[in-house]
Design a binder for these strands. Structure first.
Lengths: 128, 128
DNA sequence: ATATTTGCAAATAATTTGCACGTAA
DNA sequence: TTACGTGCAAATTATTTGCAAATAT
């Protein structure tokens, strides 16, 4: 893993990410920083996102167009996301029932489970 | 949508897809065809996959590296996939309970649901 | 005949990499 | 000081597109 140097570009990228609870593409972050004083090269944005992800400070998600998008996060228990298709805001969805169901796959299909992934797409309360 | 001309490239791509119940990348299909007599250009493979998808004869999935992968399918009810991480074989997972849970999101989070996506990753019975 | 697909080469778009230079520790 | 991050330009990878030639109807 990369060393934990505290640098201006890293702080700048992390700040953009922390500003809103939604997924950002490398490009969005790059453009956001270009608008302000804080110019950071696109490749550094990519490297920083990778770094933050490795550190556990960000989650990744491939959107439908295949772009990687990143969201700030704090290390926490396993959960799923409800993503608003209008404002992009992300809500966490906890559900032990789903976890239990996932486990039951083993008996239903003889499927040894390593992991699972779920996403709920729709409109949040505010955007409805 | 594209017209339903029956052509050698289309038949060839569909044949590869039908041969195994797993997701194929455009490249895999292209290489598979190159090995045999049936050479088809990579761009045609892409166009054909898009065509098959539009027709409802294939499903798409972005794998973790961001590549689009396609699997042959027949029009059927909504379900989820259990994907073997070793052989790539895909099993369908039906679960009304999960559907109901997804719907309940509306009351739990005030989230108006358009759709949801789930994937189970692990080892199938044969690969365990 | 004529609409449509195909192959090829060139264009895009997202991402990665090599390397000289700047900077945090 | 010196190990490590940064910027830039070039490379890579997946995918798309324009267009003339081939083919299905």
């Amino acid at each position: 893993m990369r060393a934990d140097y505290v640098t201006r570009p890293r702080e700048a990228v992390a700040e953009v990410l922390r500003a809103e609870r939604r997924f950002f593409s490398a490009n969005e972050i790059h453009r956001a920083l270009s608008r302000r004083d804080a110019k950071v090269s696109l490749s550094t944005v990519y490297r920083t996102l990778e770094y933050l992800y490795a550190k556990g400070d960000a989650t990744v998600r491939r959107d439908d167009s295949g772009e990687s998008t990143y969201m700030h996060c704090v290390p926490e228990h396993h959960h799923h996301h409800a993503i608003c298709q209008r404002c992009g805001r992300v809500e966490d969805v906890d559900c032990d029932a789903i976890e239990r169901f996932a486990e039951s796959l083993r008996s239903i299909h003889g499927f040894e489970l390593d992991g699972h992934r779920m996403e709920f797409l729709g409109r949040c309360r505010a955007c409805r």
